[in-house]
Design a protein around this nucleic acid. Structure first.
Lengths: 230, 230
DNA sequence: ATCGGTAAAATACAGTGTATCGACATGAGA
DNA sequence: TCTCATGTCGATACACTGTATTTTACCGAT
């Protein structure tokens, strides 16, 4: 039987691994948000059937965990920072930047404990940068407090960003004029403090606001690390 | 034709309103988490067809918004607090307690801007408690910083709580022994700082940890409001 | 009594995560 | 070289989702 008679061997499926799966999922999420990530679509990107993925993950939540850890690889700073303050500040800013690149991260941040290799590495790097500046408990409290701050701040920033995008208006315009609901509420006069804030407040860009709040929190941490000489 | 011959008039559908819908949704979420909330199940609780809800909300996300605002009614403190610090502290603690009663709140907190009546009322109350202690921009920064902190802290607390519940173990045991993954990682010796934190750190209960971090942040705010006499 | 408008219900659709099952290519043993 | 067990992949299936569209049935007005 000649080659011409024999059919080609059936296309062996492209070998898969978690890395490829996570990359596909991240790409989908970057393009269309978390809700664009379905196991079927991820699998389709890899020329595979949906059920194929269950050899690598056993639930969709696990895929999200892997995605988050993938992003933590971007967050891990490449060089050891100078002092503890620099370490915490960079951690915060790098997390924020990662969330701006992958907005879906804001939906997942703080949603489940992160135990993947990259996020553990980030934790290790952070803790080691704070090692020795105070007792462990204080250090832990410091890290947790700062993390809580930037987690919350990032979430709010992304939430606002999406809301603005949804109306197609700048934050300024959105607050002032567009949201007829807000305008009407303020016009009732029942919320004087809020009205004052909206009308008399200065618009600061998100990054500055983030950095300022962060500095406050870092100041607070500093105060606890080196207590006032009393 | 006697009464006996005449059939009963067809059961007119129970009148609906948003309040009832939201209450049903909240009940479902309290029992089974956010993912237990489906429009079909909510409607079923009200003896209605699923499509009936679309007269009151136009999307599931809107239902979530209503649910969040419903909880903000619980958060709004009944009496005006003494000073700004008390105001921010109570806000934080009341939000946390609400999240402990309605764990699904942690999934929604900070996810979208809250513009409902109750959450606006909370904002108004908070801002008015801080009114006059500094210029508006500083006040705004203070409120946003504290909110970011407790949003993030609450999210982490609930996330940990769920993780513990999933393993059926206490946080202590979970960290120490149960998570074989963590144990193995620490055993590699590649994460000395983390290992130190896990093994030498004191376990503090979530509430204390929350309150401590909150106090730090409030201290930071205080420092900005009444700058040191330099 | 009939008609029109409206509000509810039924149906429909495209999609989801995941369990189950059948086919089939591959490596081992004869 | 043939057979058979094995394990992997794809197809199928199920129960469910959010929501659009169509059908039904009532009410009030003519």
């Amino acid at each position: 039987m000649t080659v011409w008679d024999r059919p080609e061997p059936p296309a062996r499926p492209v070998p898969l691994d978690r890395e490829r799966i996570v990359a596909a999922a991240v790409a989908l999420a970057d393009e269309g948000g978390l809700e664009a990530v379905s196991l079927r679509k991820v699998a389709a990107r890899l020329n595979a059937g949906p059920m194929r993925l269950y050899g690598y993950i056993s639930t969709k939540e696990e895929l999200f965990d892997l995605m988050v850890d993938e992003v933590y690889a971007e967050i891990l700073p490449e060089e050891q920072p100078g002092d503890w303050r620099e370490a915490l500040r960079t951690l915060a800013h790098r997390t924020r930047q990662a969330a701006l690149r992958h907005e879906w991260l804001a939906d997942l941040l703080g949603g489940r404990p992160s135990l993947g290799p990259n996020s553990v590495a980030v934790t290790e790097a952070t803790l080691s940068a704070l090692d020795g500046i105070a007792d462990i408990d204080t250090v832990m409290r410091a890290v947790e407090t700062v993390s809580a701050y930037f987690t919350g701040a990032i979430r709010r920033e992304i939430a606002n960003l999406r809301a603005e995008r949804a109306t197609g208006l700048s934050k300024h315009d959105w607050q002032r004029a567009s949201g007829p609901h807000v305008t009407r509420m303020l016009a009732t006069g029942r919320f004087p403090a809020l009205a004052k804030a909206v009308y008399d407040g200065t618009d600061v860009d998100a990054e500055t606001s983030f950095a300022t709040g962060l500095d406050w929190v870092l100041d607070a941490v500093a105060a606890k690390l080196t207590p006032p000489s009393v």
